[in-house]
Write a protein that binds this DNA or RNA. Sequence first.
RNA 1: CGGGGCGUAGCGCAGCAUGGUAGCGCACCUGCCUUGGGAGCAGGGAGUCGGAGGUUCAAGUCCUCUCGCCCCGACCA
Length: 577
Amino acid sequence: MRLTRYLVPTLKEDPKEAEIVSHNYLVRGGFIRKVAAGIYDFLPLGLRVVKKIENIVREEMDRAGALEILMPAVIPAELWQESGRWDLYGKELLRFKDRHDRDFCLGPTHEEVVTDIVRREVRSYKQLPINLYQIQTKFRDEPRPRFGLMRGREFIMKDAYSFDADWDGLDRSYQAMYEAYTRIFKRCGLEFRVVEADTGNIGGTDSHEFMVLAETGEDRIVSCPGCGYAANVERADFKTDYPLSDMEMMPLEKVHTPSQRTIEEVSKFLKTSPKKMIKTLIYSTDKGEVMVLVRGDYDVNEVKVRNIIGANWIELADEETIEKITGAPVGFAGPVGLKFDKILIDKSIVNIRNGITGANEEDYHYVNVNPGRDFPIIEEKVVNIRMPVEGDRCPKCGTPLEFYRGIEVGHIFKLGTKYSESMNATFLDKDGKEKLFIMGCYGIGVTRVASAAIEQNHDEKGIIWPISIAPFEVILLPTNWDKEEVRSVAEKIYGELLQKSVEVVIDDRGERAGFKFKDADLIGYPFKIVVGEKGLEKGIVEIKSRKGDIAVEVKIDNAVEKIIDLIDKERKKYLPE
RNA sequence: CGGGGCGUAGCGCAGCAUGGUAGCGCACCUGCCUUGGGAGCAGGGAGUCGGAGGUUCAAGUCCUCUCGCCCCGACCA
């Protein structure tokens, strides 16, 4: 490709909306442009990267025996009503009506559609297992899209769905996807970790997330250096000791705490530590209100709360609800003397001695609160329901856990019969009986992979693409296009590389050398071949890698052979054995 | 949805307090010059100042409403 005939609108200045490096470089490098919040154009370079990632995904999915299909983006409401998600899925589901006033949505995920295909077309156990996948534009009306391709509203996703005759089959299908994903992300040059995850709205039993380690990741994960246990913090289990204080229990006392509402305010006002405070939170859920007690210095894990009570959604209760339950405004809730039995007690509360909590009365707190004495500790309501923190230990081997931030690029679920049941999707088994398909589903954020790759592979000058997903493998950089000998050598090498099917760009613009170097570094071509007057006098051209590990001079006639050799070696680094 | 901020040329911004000829840098076009890390000089094109209404002799600037975008939080397979 000739740059004079290509569209690569690079920018010298940082786009003001870009907060993270991948977003910044994707815009500056001319890969993407924003059309609306969370919605982007892919310009030629950006699309090439996407296609590279798609092809890796496709090769590995095909290798794993999955079959590529393409489902519609526009989905009739009936299918979503059938599964029940039309009512459960919130505002992320973009709904609209057609000219006949029929309800439709833009598909954020395709369990319903694929289940509908399989229940119509697959009748016998002999056709199982089967795994159908697609690479398609998804739409999720995120409340707050951000970070460019990282959290868009419209994005490209690979979604796959497996159907098995039994649970052992599902385990095998799941394992095959686990392995395929591992290969895919290795080939994309990502450093990642597989963690146990919550199943969220999708539902189901087991689930793993593939997390790219990066400071800018929106997810937090824990991992154990001792035994390899790793999980999303939302899901993570952990061990902690809450030693019982030998302090004498003091008499319960109500104290005046005017306008002291937050943990921080109250602990400061009473000159004590948040560790002495019993934080009392009221949540509203689709299963009613629930009260959660946790030590003042910890955060509640809302995902666990939701799972324990079996709710579909959960949110902090509004002021009105809190006042109704506690009889006091927000900031003065507490378990003492409260007649409300839907309660969850974090383990961190149990051994508190002479603690502090709200008195369910405006401007008053109790001090010297002792759990068990001043309010009941009912064994089955005591749970581990807080977020882990630094110092908590591995649930399996007891080693202190390590904390990381991660970008979720892939997520695999064992769905079981959640959708086959609600949508009545059955097949005829060996024994002649009708049975529900056992399902799994498996997603990869294709466009997010591009972002994640940049977060992990860049420097102050620009992107350093892994060659497997680079838009081009090499750029020919003639330092002075007006000089006949420079141009003819560059053209000759260019022609030969095209012949050999090398993905090459030639910078045939009349720009100065420095300008071309800056552009090449920003865009991140893995290799560049510099053709300059100085080199030609010696009969050589230079080959440099973007990573900086290779910088060699080669005779003009050997340039093609040498670059092909280097590219081959580089490609091999990303292929799993 | 709550809090904060911003909409002026393709991009990044100034101008608004105190109303009176719409500006700067980059990018773009022409010419000269230059050519190994985002050169220089000269000339040039490009803007319904997000939109609607209002106040005024006069609105980018003041008032009201509205739309969009960004950040923090809530939220989020």
